[in-house]
Each structure stands twice: as structure tokens, then as C-alpha cells.
Design a protein around this nucleic acid. Sequence first.
RNA 1: GCGCUUGUGGCGGAAUUGGUAGACGCGCCAGACUUAGGAUCUGGUAUCUCCGAUGUGCAGGUUCGAGUCCUGUCAGGCGCACCA
Length: 952
Amino acid sequence: MEYNFRDIEKKWQQKWVEEQTYKVVEDKNKPKFYVLNMFPYPSGAGLHVGHPLGYIASDIYARYKRLQGFNVLNPMGYDAYGLPAEQYAIQTGQHPEKTTFQNIDRYREQLDKIGFCFDWDREVRTCAPEYYHWTQWAFQKMFNSFFCLKEQKAMPIEKLIQRFETKGTQSDDGGTVQVACTEELNFTAEEWNSWDEKKKSDVLMNYRIAFMGETMVNWCAGLGTVLANDEVVDGVSVRGGFPVEQKKMRQWCLRVSAYAQRLLDGLETIQWSDSIKETQKNWIGRSEGTEVQFKIADSDESFTIFTTRADTMFGVTFMVLAPESELVEKVTTAEQKAAVEDYIKYVKGRTERERMIDHKVTGVFSGSYAINPFTGEKNPIWISEYVLAGYGTGAIMAVPAHDSRDYAFAKHFNLPIIPLIEGADVSEESYDAKEGIVTNSPRKDVKPYIDFSLNGLTVKEAIAATKKYVKEAGIGRVKVNYRLRDAIFSRQRYWGEPFPVYYKNGIPTMIPEECLPIELPEVDKFLPTETGEPPLGNATVWAWDEANKKIVENTKIDNKTVFPIELYTMPGFAGSSAYYLRYMDPHNNQALVSEEADKYWQNVDLYVGGSEHATGHLIYSRFWNKFLFDLGVSCKEEPFQKLINQGMIQGRSNFVYRIKDTNTFVTLEKKDQYDVTPIHVDVNIVSADVLDVEAFKAWRPEYNNAEFVLNDEGKYVCGWAVEKMSKSMFNVVNPDMIVEKFGADTLRLYEMFLGPVEQSKPWDTNGIDGCHRFLKKLWKFMTNEDGTINATEGAASKEELKALHTLIKKVTADIEVFSYNTSIAAFMVCLNELTKLKSTSREVKEALTILLAPFCPHLAEELWHLLGKNTTVCDAPWPAFNEDYLKEDSVKMMVAFNGKARFQLEFPADVTKEDAEKAALANPQSAKWMEGFTVAKVIVVPGKMINIVLKK
RNA sequence: GCGCUUGUGGCGGAAUUGGUAGACGCGCCAGACUUAGGAUCUGGUAUCUCCGAUGUGCAGGUUCGAGUCCUGUCAGGCGCACCA
């Protein structure tokens, strides 16, 4: 009987559903293992063969762990909120929920065909009210929390209010409270207590973890919304590619920056690739430096700069302020006013994109000077766009000799350059390296301004010495800065989680926790309102009746008992930040996750997904989880213990070559004889690079009458190239088609056989035959002509057991390190061996079936069934490896001369080094190689080789 | 510019601690069964001047021995990008 994958796969997929084979319940008697894939956004295009790669890899691991006796959680769900569905809604009027659900159904249909062991009872959708209930809940918790820098954790805002009521912002040790904030404020308890509700609310926003802030945001007019930093690339939106500009707006934000240090420290405790860790480290951007105060000459004012090169204080020749800095106004003199205003105007006219693409050297002199506290010199204060308002203090001291940007500025505006490191040549470029011996600090030809010298120290020593001096002199302090910015958390869109917030006399107020979730209201239009409000402004039932605790019609708004509700919605990352916790306990309507479920499942042991989420999702969800950890909701500080980044599957495009100005196409071999234009051709009508000429004619009307110049064999051969898999390249391969033609087990096998999971590689359907052939051969090996299993009882032969245990060893080791391609190769070798041995041992065939189960679950179930088992193969015990079967009676060793291998000798397995050496030297074949040489020494590597070192 | 990462046949890719480079698969070649096949089976397939020599991007080094370790360099991919 043939290997009938269609019937087998259909049958077992049905059985798995009927028998709830993949339903998982907490079981304290078994160790847990949590496998998770990054859940997909269900796009309208459906899945192509690249999408399931990670799912297959994790599915194999999940099944393997289950066979090893673990209780495995392997859930799947949908990141259902997103811009494409909403853009489609705007164009067609179709409710985004409708398109989203259609797409989800399509995804599910495609996923089901591949035979994953997902527990679909635990499915989550971010757009379901019972799910976003907990997104809204977490937001409210963040609103009601502040971050204590001393304890490095979130705490209830009430504690901070109490402190303000009794001591204002004063801390116990007399300084200012160490609390993460937008802006450092100082006020007394009296002041605080005298303020009205509105003022208090405004002040608290400075400290809340979810807060409303007036910040520079990435405004995308094309999408009508603000975007987070990771949603903007090269000054355009990731979705849609619309230009993005900087704009000051009042938005909800999350104080992610408060967690910067913990986000950095946590990286040390998790098993992620170095590249992702490195990317996150860069994104967090910790930099240890010094803040130094500079007095403004002829004024009582002073300002603070941040530097990591405190050792260069003696080389400062000018100061630079960011154009947006509040200091600009203070330092601009009357004579320079017009010039400065012109310059500010110019900077404002530059878009983010322009500033990013060309780094022009521009700037203007403010007219004022700052007094260098180390040299006493008056350094001119300039204003330039190369200094960023959002980092440090928005002001720098410029040391052109040792900073390339300052150098470029100094050269352009003809400012002095003073080298401070022995031997540094700064005539052509700055010397940026942080190494060398400090000199000119202070310069020998000038009278020292202060009693302090760095001369003769290394850069490192000089930095430390300066830090110490600055601190003692009271002109600065040691400071750690992070590049990580707070996340903008509101979007001016419809298709997202609504904020559970209403505005009571202008004060953002939380809707009571027991009233959650606040469901997304219906609107008749998905565009902004005519008055420019976000789409939720179109909702007619969107007001909060405070007394009756319910949502009512907008017409009832009186701002006494009924108030307007927030019109913004949450961004995409809101729903995807804690979904992994929800899978643990998806139907709980009392809590995000019960304590028992959280204690049992802990965190994700293996997380699989693309590396493109390195600075988005993977930062936000770590932040979100750390917050929930502080709350005691999550028992683990890091959500994802081990991370595997699956590579991208690229497309393999095919080309035909049209002779210019004709409708004649020439085969690859002869294309150089003509003037041709390459044209993408649908890969689905090309097989092994040979074009199906008739299918090509039928493909498009303009090719109906196409003519062809064929090769000598009468074939049309196409060219090919590796490109991104996309519709426009006609290289999209659909998994359904592969499943239909070869079966899900072949697809699973081939996707893994293609190469290492973490590596990007092109998809080439041509190679799939090899994997399909393997399964056919396996079927033939396992079964008789009549479809019954071909197995006999009794002891298996030594050779059979050797082949089997070689496989067990290899597969077990390979799965642990996700090297699936090599384990599949081992399967092929083993099958060949067993076929040659005409093995019929039941013992061997049972073990083989279990080993196969993670890779090809349908076929394994069928074989398991044929072997007379009436349980699922998923619960079989993983075969134990026995080293004894691999032991050899004899051992072959290579004899080499000066490292060059020459011939092989066979010895008894327990041969000693000395005997092997003797035998090699005495062997007649050796004589030939040793002629004219003497033996210097002999190196014996047991079981591998005998290297005889010769010299003249 | 900085950080990470990858360079091995016609192609995808294998190679424990340094120990016979090219496993496995595709493709290709030859043969078998077939009047037929995009079916199945068997054998072959790095290069050359084919005794033998040369071969893992390139140039050096360490070593009895290097794809693997070290130094330099080139090329591709990804990420960040005026972060003081």
C-alpha cells in the first residue's frame, strides 16, 4: 500500500480534536514546560511558507518535551488590533472586527492543516473584551503607581501622596525624593496641601508610571496618529511609509525609562542571543558620566551639562545648547536675537527625516559666554541642532580635539581646538579614543585657575579624578543617563483598546475597576471627526455616568454627574505585552491570571519569534512584566527565559527573458545572444527552473501568443534570484498547496531540513521531493503490502540496535539545541541502514515511531496505531539511549605523517597507545613514507589517528 | 561611523574538546525496470596536469595537525545612528 498522507493526516487531525489530545491542565505531579510563539497579526494575505517556520520548530520541541514527561503548555492566539484592518475599514466601511475575524478564521484553517499541538481552548485575541479587560486593568494599575528609584520598584501612588502631604518632595536624608519623574520638582508639604485637585493631578502626572505628558511625539499625518519610536524607521512610519514629524502633544505615556536599569540587569539572567541582547543594550543606552555646572558670564544664572569625558574639562573651547532648550532664551543677547530666531525657525522647518539623513553642520552664536570652572576661561555658548534636547540636559561642553562632532563644528565655525592627550594629532581629525596619557590639563604656559591637575594620568584615571573633584567642589555630580525613552501610549485610532478613563473637570479619572472592561463603542465612521477629534469622537454612546457607574449617551454630558470618556485608544503593544500570562489562565474573569496558575507555569521556558521585535515587543513586554512582578501578579521578573529567533524564509524568484520590443522569450542559456528584459514569473508555474510554457501562456492575457526560444533539449529554463517573499515578485509559496501535494508531515520535515532554524534561507520547493521520498521509504519500511505493520517479536540484532541507538543519541542531542536539520539527516541515514539490514524488529520500529513523532506527528500516530497501540503516541516515553550498543569490537585509526593522513589500520577496541604506535611504525606501508626521514615523535589520539612526525 | 552576525561544491547545508572537509538532501551523470513517465531502484558526482597535488572569502601566525584558535583584511546580511 502506498503512503496515503491525505487520509492519514485528515484522520488524525480529526481524532486530536475529538479526543482533546492537546488539552493541557495544570498537573502538580509533572514538571511544567512552557513553549510560546510570538502570536501573529492575522493579515489579509494569509500565511505563506515562511510563517509556520517558527511554529513548526517550537511544535517539535513541545512534542519532544511532552514525550520526555513534561506537562507542556503550547498555546496560540492572535494579536488582533492593528492598522491594516483599520485602513481597510476606512476605505470600505467594513468594520475592522469583521475583517479581523475573517482573517483569523483563514489563519486557523491554514494552521490546522499543519498539525500543531496547540491547546486551542486557551486561544486569546487581544480585541476580545474578556482579554482587554486585563490590558485596561494593568493600565489603571500603572496609573496608580510610581517608581521608587531607591527600591527600584513600582509602588502605590498613595504612598507618594502621603509623603507630599507631610514632607513635600523632601526625602528623609534631607535631599529630594528619589522617584522616577518627568521633571525634577521641589515643593513643600504646605505648598502641596494648598493646591487644588487639578494642580495636584497635574503634579502627580510627573510621577505616575502611566501618565499624561506634554511631550515631543512622532506625529504621522498620513495615519492620523502618533507613533512609538520603534514604529518609525528612517523618518517614515513602518506601517504605510508615511512621513513622520516631531510635534509637541499631550499624550498618555508609560514610564518605561524608570525600569532602564532593571531591563539592563535582567538581560544577564536570560538565555537570549547576543545580538538581541546587544540590540536591547544599545536601545537602553546606559552611559555613566558626570554632570557639571557652568556659570553664565555676567549673570547669576548657571546651567548643567552632561559628559562622559570629564577628563577633557581643560579642552573645552565652546558650549552648545539644543535649539529646543529652555536656556536658549536666557542666554541670547540683544545683538544676537535676530540671528538666533532665524536659526530656530530654520531648525523647526527641518523634519525628523531631514535631520537624520544629512548631518549638516549648522549653528548660531548666542552672544553669551560660560565660565569654565577648571580654566576660568569664557567659552562662547552656541546653539546647534546636533545637540539633542531629549538627552542628558540638552546642553554640552564641546571638546573639539576629542569629539568628532565638536571637531566638525569647530572647523566649520573656526573655533579653537586644544589637544589634551600626549601624541594626539588633531590637525586632520579629532582623537576620540578613550586612551592615552593626559596633558595640557592645565596647560603649562598659563597660570592654573584652580589647584587641580590631570597631567600624566591615563584617561580612565583622569575621568575618576575629575568626578571626585567636581563632587567635592560642589559643581556637579556623577550621573547615569539612559537613551531609553518613555513610550507614547495613546493612538488617535479606532481599532484598539479604549482607555478606561473619563475627564472630570479636566482631570483624568479612572473608571472603577469593577466596571471593567470598558468596551470599544460602535462608530459609523472610522476617520477622525470634522473637529479633528480621534475616531472615537464619532461614538454617540461614550460618556461616563459616575453615579450609576455606566456608559451613557454623549448628550447627557453635563460635567456634573456625566463626563466625557477618553477618545484615544491604546497602541498595538498594549495587548501583546502580557498575553503570555493570560494563556496560563485564559478564562479567569476575576484576575489576569490566578496565583495558582502563575505559580505553576511561572514564565515562558522557550519563546520563538522574529528578531524584528527586539526593540519593540521584547522591551515593552519585559517592562510590562516587571511592573506586574512588582505588583506581585507575576512570580517571575523575566517573562521569556530562552529566546530563539527564527530566520526569515526568503523567496526564490524565477525570471523569464523577453527579447526587447517583442513577445518572444528566450531560455536562460541563450539570453546573452539577445537584448533581453528579465521579467518575474510566477514560481508556481516553474518546476526545477523549467517553465511550464502552456501555463505561462495562460498566466496572463498578454502572453497568450508568446513565442519561445528553447534550449537544445527543447526546454525553457528560467533564471532565479533570492528575494523577499512577496506578491509583487510572484514568489509566494502557500503552505496549503504544499500540504495538498505532499502532506503536512513532509512540509514540517522540509521546513526544518532547509537549514538551521535561526538562519535566514531561501525557500526552494524543488528540494521537497527528498523529504517526501524519505517518508515514502519509511512507510514502505514499516508496513507490508497490505498495509499492516511489518514487525516481528524477538530480540533485535546487534546491527539494528546500533543503528537505532546512534539515531536516539543524535536526535536527542540535536533537538535540545534546535538542530533539526541534522537530526532529520540522521533519520535518513538510519532508515537506509535498517532497510539494508531488512530489519523487522518490533522493538526498533516502536522506538523509531516515537522518535519521529515530534517531526511528523500524523504519520507517527498512524504507525503507532498500526503497531497495535490504542493510546496517542504523544504520551509514549522517549526512547532511552544505551551506550553499550554503540561499542565496537575493533577500532580504526588513521596513520598520518606530519599531519597528512595516509592509510587506515584496524585494532582491537582496547588497544593501548604503545601497541598502536608500534604497529603503525612496523607496518610495511609506513616504510615508504618514512624513507629518508627519521621519526621525531609519534602522537596517538585514541580511536582517531596516529600521527608520525618525521624530520630529515 | 558603532554594534551584532555570516562567508565551505552547481544549490540548501554537515563536520564533539583542533584530528580522514563536503554528512544528508536537491540538481546533474550513468545504469536497471519500463515501447512510455516529473514513478521506483542501483552506482557516481570538490578541483587539477588525476602517480600525486590543491582545496572551507583573502593574507599571515600558533600547532605534529586549523573550516575550527589568534592577528590583520575584504565582502554580504541585520540593528542603531549627531546619545556628548
